[in-house]
Structures are given as structure tokens and as C-alpha cells.
Simulated scan of single mutants.
Amino acid sequence: MDVLKDFLKQNLKYSHIFMDASSGQTLAKSVADMINKGTLAQADTLLVLQSAYAPVEEYLHTLPHAPIIVIATQSSIPSSTTPAFHLPDNADQHVVHKLLHSIERTLNLGQHVVTLVASGGTGKTQAVLKFVSENLFRFSNVWFFDASSNDTLTANFKELGKAAGVGKDVKNVKDFLARINQNWLCIFDNADDEKVFLNDYIPICNHGNVIITSRLSESSQMASPDCQINLMDLTKESAVKLLLSQVHEQSSHENHNLASKIVDALGCHALAVSTAGAYIESTPTCTLEIYLTHFNKKKKKILNYRMRSLDSYQRTVYSAFHLSFEKLSHPTQLFMQICAYLNPTAIPLGIFTQAAAFTGNDSSTVDVDPPIEAINFLKNFVSVQG
């Protein structure tokens, strides 16, 4: 064990943190101390859990995003701590050297790229945001980029460059991230456009972490080994359960059969199922029994309209959405269209909460500082609608 500790210190380019894992209590205390000191957010941190006689598996999820070595004199190390290296009691120098070389190769520093691929509406972005909210302490910084187009990426990089004082060009920001030798996280969300080459935006360095969400299966090629995540649509049983929970109906045999027919028609797409549930719940005249009649009428109308270019998934989700959209008043529909026209992904909720709380008078004919750019945008939108 001493040979291994000396090897780690001399041959691996990491800041080593040795933790006592002889019991769950001591390990939890060590982790808490390191978090308070802020040392776990460094990009080159290697955690070494010594004397791991405790069931460390239940504590691994609390540890930061960093390489971990578990050292124990017993073979009952949990399977999740792979790859596993076992040193026989009678090992000679050649075996020891081979073991140490394998550990060195496994723990070479590098950038981690995770790809999350799934169709729209399956919750890719929500899953990433939940991960970040629960693991924020693991990273020195977290940056979120809208990767839906080159324009949105360029705008996001310009904002980061301006805030960091490094220049507004994409190259300036890439070089800035490459220089920050810390455990940062960059999220490239909605990378669905084949014309967007993310390699033009991802920093070239041996540190940091990248998460990419996309509908494109080829995005998985950018992932680090064993870091591709493919989210499938809901299983039929899960889709039925989701729909029944949305409409607050009991899971009786009759309701289960009705819900099964609906989710089959919706292809078990999570977004379409959720939208259908919201529509049924908010429409007094609509029930599980007659929803498909509403849906099929709308779908037929869409197929006969100007949307033949949509694939089956897009038509299904759009049909389910449009049923709910038509229930809104005309001013509300127009307001939603304006929001989508301005920017469908970056409308802050604060706008709505401030508007709801506003009790003043905004109908004055004189405005000393009119929002010229917004006014011109709206004029363009109205001209398109007209």
C-alpha cells in the first residue's frame, strides 16, 4: 500500500487528497471538510480513499466529480468502483509495475465530454439542470450555452467574454477556458443543427467537463469513452402512468385501457403525453374516452395544412400542443407567439412575475427612454403576421 501511495505522488499529475474511509462517519467528515475548504473543485484533484473497510459504495455519490482510488486490503470492493485492480499476496516486482502502469494509464488527465441524445421533449435539458443543481459544489464554474445555432452560440460566447473581460470573439473565450485549469463545466444545450460544429466552440485542453444535449445520434461520437447517454421515449407503462397522473384519474382497468390507446397514438412521447394530460385536465368537455376524437381531428387538419415536412414525431407533438393552444384567448395566443418570435428559450420568468405585480400606469404618451429595438422587433412580427 505504501508503494502505491508513493507511486501516486511521484507519477500522476494530480493534487492528491487522502481520505480515511475506514468508516462511513470518518469518510463523510473528510468530504465535508474538503467542501468547506473549497479544494474539491480543482481540476487536477485525485481522491484516495484509504483503508476502505466501510461500505464505501453508498458514499461515492456524495463525492465530487473527480478521479477516485479506493485502497483496501480486502476484495469486497463494490463493483461500481471499476476499473478494479487486484494485487495478489505473492506478487513480484513485474506484477507490481504492471499494476501501477495500468493505474497511471487509467487516471491520465483529460477533458470529459458527456453526450445526452434523445428526441425532443424527453427532458434532456431538465435532466442536466437537475444534475447541476445537485452537484454544483463539484465544479469551479458552470456555463450554459444555447447550441441551437451558430448565432446563439456566438451571442453566448460574446456575453461570457464580455463578463470575463477577455474579448468578445469565440476564440478569445475558448482560449480563456483553456487557460482556466479548474474543474469547470460547459453545457451545450439543444445541439440539434447539423450545420453547427461544436468543435469550433469546445476548448482544446486537458481539463474541464462538457455536457452536450442533442437529438442527433452522431453527437455521441464526441463523447469520452463510456460517456454516451441515449434517452429513449417512455415505456408504454410509464406513459400510461404519467397520463393518468396528469388527469388525476384512478388506475382502474377501464382507465388503463383508455390511456393505453392514447399513449399508443402519441407514440409514448413524453412531451405529447404531458400535453395531452394537461388538455384533458383543463377541458371539462374532454375525457380519456373522447380525447382521441379531438386529437385525430386536429391531426388530420394539420396533415392537410402546410406542415407536410414534419416527421411523425413532430406532427404528434404539435397536434397535442395545438389542442391546448387553441383553448387560449386570442391575446394570450398572440403574446405567446411574440415571446417565441423574440426568443423561445431565453424569456425570463421574472418578466411575467413583474408584470403580474405591476399596479402602475404604463399608458403615458411620453417615454423618455423608449425600447427602440424591442419596438422594431414587434413591428417586424406584426408585419409578418399581417
Rank of each mutant, 00 (worst) to 15 (best):
S140I: 05
N156D: 08
I17N: 00
G38F: 08
L46R: 02
D146A: 10
A320T: 05
D192W: 00
V240M: 06
S149W: 01
R308Y: 08
K171N: 09
L323D: 01
R179V: 07
F321D: 01
V114A: 06
L234W: 01
K299R: 15
K241R: 11
D146S: 13
I347W: 00
A155T: 00
A155W: 00
S220L: 09
P344I: 01
S251R: 09
Q50P: 06
K261N: 15
Q228D: 09
F197D: 13
S149Q: 04
S75L: 13
P88A: 02
Q337V: 05
H269S: 08
Q221I: 10
G24Q: 11
S102H: 09
K236I: 12
H94D: 07
Q93I: 02
N183L: 02
Y59W: 15
H269P: 04
A54N: 10
P203C: 04
G208M: 04
S217Y: 08
F377R: 06
H207V: 02
L27Y: 08
L258W: 03
S383R: 12
A278H: 09
V368T: 09
D367G: 04
A320N: 05
N141C: 08
S51Q: 15
V170Y: 03
L47N: 04
V382G: 09
P348F: 06
L107I: 10
Y279R: 03
G110D: 12
T345Q: 11
T359L: 09
L349C: 10
T106Y: 11
L185H: 01
F295C: 13
H112A: 09
G350F: 08
G208E: 01
K236M: 12
R315K: 15
S119A: 14
K158E: 11
V132E: 03
N141K: 11
Q250R: 12
H207F: 12
G277F: 02
V142W: 04
V240L: 10
A163N: 12
T115H: 01
G165Q: 12
M336W: 12
W184Y: 14
Q337N: 12
Q25N: 15
L198I: 06
L266Y: 05
F358T: 07
T359Y: 07
Y318V: 03
D169C: 08
Q74E: 15
C205L: 07
S51I: 11
C268K: 02
D362G: 06
D2F: 02
A178Y: 04
N380R: 09
V317F: 05
H248T: 08
A340I: 05
N108K: 15
R306Y: 13
G38K: 05
D189C: 02
L136Y: 11
H94V: 03
A41S: 14
K300Q: 15
V384T: 12
T365I: 13
I347A: 06
A28H: 11
H94N: 06
A84H: 15
I202C: 06
A356D: 05
S274Y: 04
A91S: 07
R138Y: 12
T45Y: 08
Q333W: 10
D192V: 00
S274W: 04
L99R: 00
